[in-house]
Design a protein around this nucleic acid. Structure first.
Lengths: 214, 214
DNA sequence: CCATCTATTAACCGCTTCGGTCAACACCAT
DNA sequence: ATGGTGTTGACCGAAGCGGTTAATAGATGG
């Protein structure tokens, strides 16, 4: 298997992981050549096959590693512990950005692997996805207190809207190719501030508008 | 060149265009085989080469067609003529969705072609992009009247936020693979309604909160 | 200085796939 | 029959694929 891979210095491991994430995130499984991954990692194809017996093994290893470190990072950030919506959103973003700084293509890779249809790997991906989903699902829709927000707002729609906007912002960076995490962090920060300024009930309204709109 | 292609019945032309958009939107130029496109169009590879002399010619033809029909549709929808923000947004969406119903993968194709790096085509893409951009740039940031919106809102941020959210919503559909335009239309409609309900100044505030927050 | 071990690679293998060609077939109107 | 038109399967040389292997270079240790 890949015992030899683990005895590599951490930095070299990360280089290979990122090369894999990069290539597999831009092409389908079948159209992601091992040679291209080796090149991206700056090693020979033979050496890559020395670490991983075959393409499938590398792919599934990347998938499991992706799940593992994402979960770790998420839990470490305490994104699930926060009680306030924007607070948990901020620490969630923080975790995602920290992850992305280390593994720039991990997000795109995860999405692509999720939807991969090639029968050589899709079954295994689907199977080992169980736990990954299980943890992510803990991002339960938070119990939101309607009184915190401007009166009459559709909270579920607000939630979807915010999700889509961050996804769209991310997507823009991905398409551009250059993964400038600092600029992303700045944009996300502005987004959250904007949401706060718009969706949160403004103080002077607290008493005035009470119940008037229901 | 492709004189024979144009004498095809419209419906058959569209089938081939969509096959091209589909394959080229999911793989890079080099990794999009002509055979796959022919299969997707339900014709033989030989026939595809009968219509287009080579792969590059087909690709650039798709790119130019994509630009042409997008511009046409946008102008026909009158998205640029509207004066009201949400109105122009709605008709713009309408055009986009109408286009997407006819050519489901045209949007993804356009983005991918825009960022394509293969030297065999990138130069030509970049070159013929001039006019495409020129027209799209006419989507000038509309003169918005701050009095129409809730007081104190950051209008530019609002605009970016809305753009990202629609992009993110679209992205979700794309990733899922099935391009359900009806469901998309429904989602976009809800989004716009939500924005109206949240960003537009609410009637009872018009007098009450005047200038209090600046 | 030699023997041994480990990390690393170039060269190679058999097979598939690629872009593109070509000769032939089917169909239709002369 | 004749000739034009639309369409295809079979084919070509070249390139790319996943994977193997034999050999190289360098560190270690006696």
């Amino acid at each position: 298997m890949n015992r030899k891979f683990f005895s590599l210095p951490q930095e070299k491991q990360q280089l290979i992981l990122n090369a894999g994430f990069h290539v597999f995130s831009r092409n389908s499984y079948r159209k992601s050549p091992m040679s291209e991954i080796a090149d991206a990692a700056g090693i020979s194809k033979s050496l890559l096959f020395h670490y991983f017996n075959n393409k499938k093994e590398l792919y599934l290893f990347l998938w499991n590693t992706c799940a593992k470190i994402t979960i770790e990072e998420m839990e470490r950030s305490g994104a699930y512990d926060e009680t306030d919506l924007f607070g948990s959103m901020e620490s969630g973003m923080d975790a995602k950005l920290r992850l992305m700084r280390k593994y720039p293509d991990i997000g795109t890779f995860a999405v692509r692997a999720f939807y991969e249809k090639d029968p050589e790997v899709s079954a295994d991906v689907r199977e080992s996805m169980g736990q990954y989903i299980a943890v992510h699902a803990r991002r339960k829709l938070q119990k939101l207190d309607p009184d915190d927000f401007i009166p009459g707002i559709d909270l579920e729609m607000m939630y979807r809207e915010m999700y889509w906007a961050s996804e769209g912002c991310l997507w823009e960076y991905i398409q551009r190719g250059e993964m400038n995490v600092d600029a992303m962090e700045d944009d996300f920060g502005k987004l959250i501030d904007f949401w706060k300024s718009v969706y949160l009930r403004r103080p002077q309204e607290e008493v005035k508008n009470e119940r008037k709109d229901i």
